[in-house]
Each structure stands twice: as C-alpha cells, then as structure tokens.
Amino acid sequence: MRKIFLLLSVVGTLAFTSCDNDDDIYVDTDTIGETIQLNSVNLTFDNATGRYQLLYPLDPVIYDSDAVLVYRFVNDDGFIAKQLIPRTLYIGGPDEVDYDFNYTSQDVLIYADANFDLSTAPEFIYNQTFQIIILPSDFSSNIDVNDYDAVMSALNAGGNQEVRVIETR
C-alpha cells in the first residue's frame, strides 16, 4: 500500500510540475502613452472665466491614474522650442501672459490669461501649437517632465510612439 501511495505521489507531482506555466509572459495593456499635437490653435474668449481657452475632448477617455502634460511650441530664433505649461511669459514692463491647463479623464482645457487685454496681442492666442502627452502613472514619477526629449524617449522605449496631429483651422 505504501508503494502505491508513493507511486501516486510521484506521478501526481510530475503531472503538476509538467504543466505549462506562462507566468513569465507579460503583456502590458495599461501603460500606453499617447501624444496629440494640436496645430494652428486659436484660443477663444470665454465670458464666464474671462480668459482665452480651448477645450479638447479626449477620445478615448484616459484612466484617472494617468498624468497629462501639455507643451506649447514656440519659435526661438528660428528653432521650435517646447515649453512645458503652466508657464508665465514676462513680455516687458509689468505685462505677463500665463498659460495653464487642467484635465479630467474626458478632456483637456488649455487656457491663457494676462494682466492686460490679450486681444491686443494676438500672437499669444492665435495660431498656437500645443502637444498633449498622456503618461501612464508608472512613467510620471520616473521622468523629468521639463525635458521634452526625455519624456518622448521614455514613451518610445515601450514601442513606437505615434503622434496624432490635429489641424484645428
């Protein structure tokens, strides 16, 4: 009887250890970054808030745990520079322009405000280019978000990062 029990134990152990175990195969389905470039954006005046803004709906919606970054493209001596917003531009004397944004899982609101009438300085509200970068929560704590190239490199490390370009004119 002991020999039969020992034989069954050995056979049972071999049967369970010979099963295929796919624990080492990992498919990452929730850390997909997305980049959306908005070209030729004209911020429009909102009477309720008293500022110029653009509301961009996210399609598809993002996870609540994701982080969103917004960069504004500016021409800097013939080169395109990417400035992380929020950003304050001091344009001489007491005048300043503030760019900021907020977001939900469904949309991104980009806005500009100033301590003067922005309609007198259309270069700050018309024909703007913004890039919205959606970062999975794992990325946001490990990247210097002030360095645009570092952000894009981190997103590209996981595969081909596609930039969805939207013309808003």
Rank of each mutant, 00 (worst) to 15 (best):
D76S: 05
A112V: 00
F73T: 06
V108Y: 13
F124G: 00
A114V: 12
I110T: 11
F79N: 11
I85Q: 04
T120S: 15
V97P: 07
L55N: 15
G93L: 01
D113P: 02
Y126V: 05
F116R: 15
I125Q: 09
I80M: 08
V97K: 08
Q106F: 03
N102G: 10
V74P: 10
L89Q: 09
S40Y: 14
A67F: 11
S65V: 13
S105W: 01
Q128I: 03
Y126E: 13
P94L: 12
V97D: 08
N115E: 05
E96W: 00
V41E: 05
E123L: 13
D46L: 06
A121H: 13
S119H: 13
N39Y: 07
N115H: 05
N75K: 15
T49E: 10
Y56F: 15
L89E: 12
I110A: 14
L54W: 04
D46M: 05
V68D: 05
Y126W: 07
P86K: 04
A121N: 09
Y103A: 00
Y111H: 03
F79T: 04
S119A: 09
Y56R: 12
V97H: 14
G93I: 08
S119N: 14
D100E: 08
T88A: 14
D59P: 00
D100T: 12
L109T: 13
E96F: 00
G78F: 02
D46R: 11
R51N: 08
V74Y: 09
D113M: 02
Q128V: 07
P57I: 00
T88N: 13
D117Q: 11
L89Y: 13
L58T: 04
Y52F: 06
T44W: 02
V74F: 05
G78Q: 01
V108F: 05
Q106M: 03
S119R: 09
V74E: 07
K82M: 08
T44D: 07
I91Y: 08
D46N: 11
P122L: 09
I110F: 13
A112G: 01
N127M: 04
Y99I: 02
D100K: 03
N42Q: 01
V61I: 01
Y52D: 01
Y56G: 12
F73G: 11
R72Y: 01
T120Y: 11
F79I: 03
K82A: 13
V74L: 14
N127T: 05
V97Y: 04
D117G: 11
K82P: 05
E123W: 14
S40I: 03
V74C: 06
I91S: 11
N102H: 07
R51Y: 03
S119M: 07
L89D: 10
N42E: 01
T88H: 09
V74N: 12
N39K: 15
V61A: 05
